[in-house]
Simulated assay, not measured.
Amino acid sequence: MIGIDEFLAMLATERGAARNTLLAYGRDLRQAEEMAGSELAALSAAQLAKLGQGWSSLAPSTMARKISALRQFYGFLIDEGEREDDPTHALPRPATRRPLPKILSHDQVEALFQCAETEAASERAEAVRLLTMLELLYGSGLRATELVSLPLSAVPRDEPFLTVTGKGGQARLVPISSRAKKVLSRWLAVRQTDSRWLFPSRSGHLTRIRLFQLLKDLAARADLPPEKLSPHVLRHAFATHLLEGGADLRALQTLLGHADIATTQIYTHVDAARLVKLVNERHPLARARASD
């Protein structure tokens, strides 16, 4: 019978699932199989119901992830003709609310850049590298993994774009600003290595963990709470501040590399006040009331 390994292989080849997604799904499915005490593909609705009951103490988001993995797994079995029934109707349906992203104010972003630019004025390699990474995280909205794994070949020569490989191995062109290009040039001038990576380390490229550490240290030096800063927070700030400036949601979806615009729509909450003001000031009925 087709099992978990075949399902994960399908996700990788047909849907282009990212490595972290495959690891998470594999872990959830194998844990479910271990809890049930028999082969996952052969479980009944009653057995799945017991699994759901066993997850009752988990956070709603964690339970939702596990249930999503199971629903997709059994859907795959049905598509492959391995099962005729779908036992996942017995699973609970936890209500989840996607958390709103943490954001930085314009003043906080300015404080970060002032600190990073002051330190980079010495042209020390480490300081110029940090400023370059900050420019690309906030100025282009890159994910942490996308940033640290940038090959040197991704750096443009004449065009104002980076070639970025995102989730699922999907490549996209990301525009970079004139100031980011200048900082990139400074970094390339002090980068003394023949590594194929833009941000190399001794064994390959800079790790995500090290990037987190560098940013939190920068936040402390800029008199900001270190817990407020991460690569993802800078990506959120990029999206939020673009929307505040009038960016189109579809354009933002492309810039962020979101496969589904529903993912991008989470950023619209930050512009709620501006939209309410827009309706109150510009809607014909609002103007009619004002003239009464």
Rank of each mutant, 00 (worst) to 15 (best):
S153G: 09
V155Y: 08
P156H: 08
R157C: 03
R157I: 12
P160K: 08
L162F: 11
L162Y: 11
T163S: 09
T163H: 06
T163Y: 02
T163C: 02
T163N: 02
V164H: 03
T165S: 04
G166F: 10
G168F: 09
Q170W: 02
A171R: 15
A171G: 02
L173H: 11
L173R: 15
S178N: 06
A180P: 03
K181R: 15
S185L: 10
S185P: 00
R186V: 06
W187L: 06
W187H: 04
L188T: 04
L188M: 14
L188E: 03
V190D: 02
V190S: 03
R191W: 05
T193H: 01
L198S: 04
G204D: 04
H205W: 08
R208G: 13
R208N: 13
I209D: 00
R210F: 01
L211Q: 04
F212E: 08
L214S: 04
D217V: 09
A220V: 06
R221G: 01
R221E: 14
R221Q: 15
D223G: 00
E227S: 13
E227A: 14
K228P: 00
P231G: 08
P231L: 10
V233N: 01
V233Q: 00
A237M: 07
G245C: 11
G246L: 12
G246W: 09
R250Y: 14
L252C: 05
T254D: 13
T254A: 14
L255P: 01
G257N: 08
A259K: 13
D260V: 07
D260S: 12
D260Y: 09
I261K: 04
A262L: 05
A262Q: 10
Q265N: 05
H269I: 11
D271F: 03
D271S: 14
L275H: 06
V276E: 01
V279A: 12
V279F: 14
V279I: 15
N280K: 10
N280E: 15
H283V: 09
P284N: 11
A286G: 05
A286Q: 03
A286H: 04
R287H: 12
R287V: 06
